[in-house]
């Protein structure tokens, strides 16, 4: 493959390297089949949720019925949480901005929940990782229990904590949903730019809500977006996220 250096040598190399691949013959059939199979409804979970809040933040999320939040401030927070959760379950949101109130949780559980919040969107960590993180590496079982009693599931992402062997572990809303949530997060991007405003936002930012789908461009980092002429949104501050 040794050839004299010419200005076109790089072009030749690139053309060879990027030549189209051979496609598996059954790809179209497989995709059409999985398109038909899409049905498991995460949206249905959103309809079943009851949300309790204090004036400081969302304090309890469960299926079934809960008491109405007592104050207007708390009711607004609960309503905002519902909107964010619905968007999240539709793949339109990659972060929660509504505050949580974990003051009812004990000190140990609070540390566990805070550690779970550090797991990036779309990723999973083992229970032992959380135990390490809170400086209590032998408390793996207690971590599992604390997460199992997570007062604010979805917003505090206990579904991102799995067993070290890849097993699901338990989940408040059932393990099938836990798997679905991870799949949902894997297919929801985190940063999107608007090709007409050249602003990059976190997915779910109020600025991006009315973006024409044609203008939606996903970026891997704010630095990448900047490198091609986008600037970070001042509302959702994506630099803090990625």
């Amino acid at each position: 493959m040794i050839e004299p250096s010419t200005p076109d040598r790089l072009d030749d190399l690139l053309t060879g390297y990027f030549r189209p691949d051979v496609m598996p013959a059954d790809l179209a059939t497989r995709i059409a089949r999985s398109a038909r199979a899409v049905g498991a409804d995460l949206g249905e979970l959103g309809d079943r949720l009851a949300i309790q809040a204090t004036p400081h933040g969302v304090s309890l999320i469960r299926t079934g019925r809960l008491e109405q939040p007592a104050s207007a401030v708390a009711r607004r927070l609960a309503e905002r949480a519902r909107e964010e959760i619905v968007e999240y379950l539709r793949g339109k949101r990659a972060f929660f901005s509504v505050p949580v109130d974990l003051s009812e949780a004990g000190a140990f559980q609070r540390r566990v929940l805070e550690a779970a919040r550090e797991i990036p969107f779309g990723e999973a960590r083992p229970y032992a990782w959380v135990a390490e993180r809170i400086g209590n590496p032998h408390a793996v079982r207690a971590v599992g229990t604390a997460l199992g009693r997570n007062p604010v599931p979805l917003i505090v992402p206990c579904h991102r904590v799995w067993r070290a062997d890849g097993g699901l572990g338990g989940y408040l809303f059932g393990v099938a949903l836990k798997r679905q949530l991870l799949a949902l997060e894997r297919s929801t991007p985190v940063l999107e730019g608007c090709a007409s405003t050249r602003i990059v936002c976190r997915v779910g930012c109020v600025q991006g809500r009315h973006m024409n789908p044609e203008n939606r461009v996903v970026f891997a980092s704010v630095k990448d977006a900047r490198s091609v002429g986008y600037r970070p949104c001042k509302v959702c501050r994506p630099s803090a996220a990625a």
Binding site: F18, D21, M23, I31
Partner: peptide
């Protein structure tokens, strides 16, 4: 749909394959 896949599949796979580095991730 099969026609679209036939027309573009190989090129889409090449783009994804070279960007992601693995055939499985590209597929």
């Amino acid at each position: 749909f099969a026609e679209v896949v036939g027309r573009y599949g190989g090129r889409l796979l090449a783009v994804a394959g070279r960007l992601l580095g693995s055939r499985a991730d590209a597929e």
